[in-house]
Amino acid sequence: MRDFSRDHEWLSINTATIRKQQGAEVPLDRLIDQCAAQGIRAISPWRDQVAAVGLDRIAQQLRALDIGLSGYCRGGFFPAPDAAGLKAALEDNRRAIDEAKTLNAPCLVLVVGALPGALDGKVHYKDIARARSEVRDGIAASLDHAREVGMPLAIEPLHPMQAADRACVNTLEQALDLCDELDPQRTGMLGVALDIYHVWWDPKLQQQIARAGRQRLLAYHVCDWLTPTRDLLNDRGMMGDGVVELRKIRGWVEQAGFAGYSEVEIFSALDWWQRPGAETLATCIERHRSVV
């Protein structure tokens, strides 16, 4: 297992972690400068943050600072109530793939979606099997364009608490079943983004990480699970502040062949988003060295 204690060469910051500082939204170009100032060499930005500043401008800034990506957030949200909605989702994912390519991302992370309208409290249908079928078909269709441009897709299984509104793929096993069906040759174009917050509890986690192997493990996200958790979406913990066996799980991931970045992704409305960005980044670096 790699030794992270001496430096933070393999630390990446998902920009959600610092997108709010002292309660205020901070633009992506400023976030990138903050990461560069701390010697952080990789990030994973969100599409809305990129769009707010401009795709070409962000690409130029990343090149100038020699900062790479560990992933690009996000594609997905395939299910829809009608044919027009399904078509719109595919068109949006095609744009996301092209954006990821422009930014030279190693993968586009897919939060696949669930029951249409659930996020707004107006569910169009309740058939989760239908949603999963539309996810399968949406990934299959998007994979064609991904292969054309050379942009791997990474399915991110989300905790079952989000099965209705954000992702109806909820275990690593489910995600890998889709990978095996749609990419049986294990070409490297379809895999998973393993987010500890969503999968740490899974009794099959070690087995499924081994099953994934190097070809399927495209991204690795870290944070911690707090007890008690005050908000299931926006109260992720800083590594070491919760109950997840982070070092043990990274051992499983690296034993399976993963040798990429540990990407810190923390949504924290009540804690870290209330702090200065420099403080949050410094803590990420210290915890990456001591507990990840």
Results as ranks from 00 to 15, higher is better:
R147T: 06
A100T: 09
V135Q: 03
I155G: 02
H124L: 12
G76M: 08
R136F: 06
F78N: 04
A154C: 10
D177A: 15
R147S: 05
G54K: 01
R47V: 06
I97D: 03
L115D: 08
L55G: 07
Q49N: 13
D177T: 14
A51F: 00
F77C: 05
A131L: 03
L143H: 06
L115K: 03
L115V: 01
V53K: 11
D98L: 13
V135G: 01
G138T: 00
Y72W: 01
N104H: 12
P45E: 06
E173M: 04
R147E: 13
P45F: 02
A140C: 05
G68S: 11
I58A: 07
Y125G: 14
A114I: 07
E91S: 10
G138D: 08
G68V: 08
R63K: 11
P79N: 05
C168T: 08
A129P: 07
L119T: 10
H145F: 00
A154N: 07
P79Q: 06
V111W: 03
L69V: 01
R132L: 09
G121Q: 14
L103A: 14
R47N: 12
G71T: 08
A83P: 04
Q60E: 15
D82R: 08
E156G: 07
L115C: 07
G117K: 03
C168V: 14
V53S: 11
